[in-house]
Simulated assay, not measured.
Amino acid sequence: MDKASGVAEYPGVTDDELVLAIRTHVAGRGLPDPASADDVAAFERVVGHPMPELLRRMYLEVANGGFGPWEVASLTDTGDWFSDCADITMAYRGFADPDGLPPGIVPLMDRGCAMWTLIDFRTADGQLWDWDPNLCCMQHALAPLGQPLAQWLTDWVHGKAHEGPYPQRVLATADCRNQ
């Protein structure tokens, strides 16, 4: 257990420990109140997949956006925009064009300059992805990070989270003509 953050080092951290540590970590920051279960259910219908349980708990027990290294997008428009979008639904629909993200991959955190941290609703542990069209080209903008949400949040609480570019990101292949 890390005494400064009150959370065990990953992977031994429990969701209960992590939620409590993050509540403590963001206390006094003026974040929005937690989202409602109806808000979560409505977004799950938009995505067509259930929200990873830890992310659900973050929205329901901590705040409706604003937590994380660069502040994750709110589930609903809270008046506090944590990205260029009013809420995560607007961000998700913005990526949903025919050449957009695979279904179930959701923009989570806007890092500026068209870069996003994304979360995979198709995985129970909420595997993270990177969207960075500045590295090469649109064809190679999306890449898995091989990191679950719990590890990313634990790293953030410990002051070790990468805001991007991510060092573990899979880079474009050498035969990309746009490098």
Rank of each mutant, 00 (worst) to 15 (best):
M115Q: 15
D120R: 14
D110E: 03
A96Q: 06
A91D: 09
I105L: 00
A124N: 08
Y92N: 12
M115A: 13
G112E: 08
D110F: 00
T117H: 11
P98D: 10
A96C: 07
I88M: 13
D99P: 06
P103G: 09
R93W: 13
P102R: 01
P98E: 11
F121W: 07
R111K: 11
A114T: 14
P102E: 07
G100V: 02
P107V: 02
M90S: 15
L108A: 12
T117G: 11
G104Q: 06
W116D: 10
R111D: 02
A86H: 11
G94Y: 11
P98V: 07
P103Q: 11
G104Y: 01
I105F: 06
D97T: 01
C113W: 14
M115L: 10
P102G: 08
P98M: 01
D87P: 08
Y92V: 14
C113S: 14
A86F: 11
M115C: 15
A124M: 13
D99T: 09
G104I: 07
T123S: 04
L101H: 00
P107W: 00
F95G: 01
D99I: 06
A114F: 09
G100D: 01
R111F: 03
I105R: 04
R122E: 10
F95H: 09
R93V: 11
F95R: 05
M115T: 13
L118N: 06
G94V: 08
L108Y: 01
C113R: 15
F121R: 06
T117Y: 10
Y92T: 15
P103K: 05
M90K: 14
L108H: 04
L101S: 04
T117R: 10
G94M: 13
A124T: 13
F121L: 03
L108E: 12
F95N: 00
V106C: 05
M115R: 14
C113Y: 14
R111G: 09
C113A: 15
P107Y: 00
F121I: 01
F95M: 01
I119W: 10
I88D: 02
D120Q: 15
P107E: 04
T123K: 05
Y92G: 13
R93Y: 12
